[in-house]
């Protein structure tokens, strides 16, 4: 049971337990003062807050942010996009997984100001224009790849990214590259089946 596979360095998007733990250690360090934490592009709004521009699910948003705010809290509390869930706030569970410029990240470990000028996609943004479900969402229903549903948005975001990363080649590979997303309900068999079902449909789409 190889839970912390050595991850090839050419797959920055993959979320597995080891890199997440490194991230968690960093997050536990005291927060740097705003001037250091914020990337150069974010504008100081004058009251200790920073003005950032994000594209969220295709929509341009200008926000004035507490520099300490995580992307997760910003999505949930600031934009009322509560699909991404908080299961640990330490990069250890994957429930908060979103896409940042198409790559999966733990949004709890990503400062919102780091997303300045970038595109964020959340679970609310993966269905098609006409509201038709994304093939991965449909496959999760068809294979009952969920129980309580709390990890589900993160699992789906990770699964979509995993297919795009070309990591859906085999059951073993899927299991490795999904191992950063915990499901306490134990829906793993259904999630694997859902990914195997949706991957060819995504490629064909």
């Amino acid at each position: 049971m190889d839970r912390t596979p050595d991850e090839p360095s050419d797959t920055p998007g993959a979320v597995s337990r080891r890199p997440l733990m490194i991230g968690a250690a960093l997050a536990a360090a005291p927060l740097a003062p705003p001037g250091i934490a914020a990337p150069a592009r974010a504008q100081d709004a004058g009251d200790g807050r920073l003005r950032v521009n994000l594209t969220v699910n295709g929509e341009a948003r200008q926000l004035s942010l507490d520099p300490r705010a995580s992307l997760l809290d910003t999505l949930r509390e600031g934009l009322a996009l509560t699909g991404a869930k908080k299961g640990c706030d330490h990069g250890q569970c994957g429930a908060c997984t979103v896409h940042l410029d198409g790559r999966r990240v733990a949004s709890c470990l990503t400062l919102a100001v780091q997303a300045d000028g970038r595109a964020v996609t959340t679970i609310e943004g993966v269905a098609r224009e006409d509201d038709e479900l994304h093939p991965m969402q449909q496959a999760f229903i068809d294979h009952d790849a969920l129980q309580c549903g709390y990890c589900t948005p993160g699992q789906i975001m990770a699964a979509i990214a995993l297919v795009r990363e070309g990591r859906a080649g085999s059951a073993e590979e899927i299991r490795e590259y999904m191992s950063g997303n915990l499901c306490r309900c134990g829906a793993y068999a259904g999630i694997l089946a859902a990914i195997q079902d949706a991957a060819p449909k995504m490629r064909g789409a």
Partner: peptide, 11 residues
């Protein structure tokens, strides 16, 4: 925490 309290993962 969820890194040290080891739950079963996909793998």
């Amino acid at each position: 925490d969820l890194a040290e309290y080891v739950l079963p993962v996909h793998a």
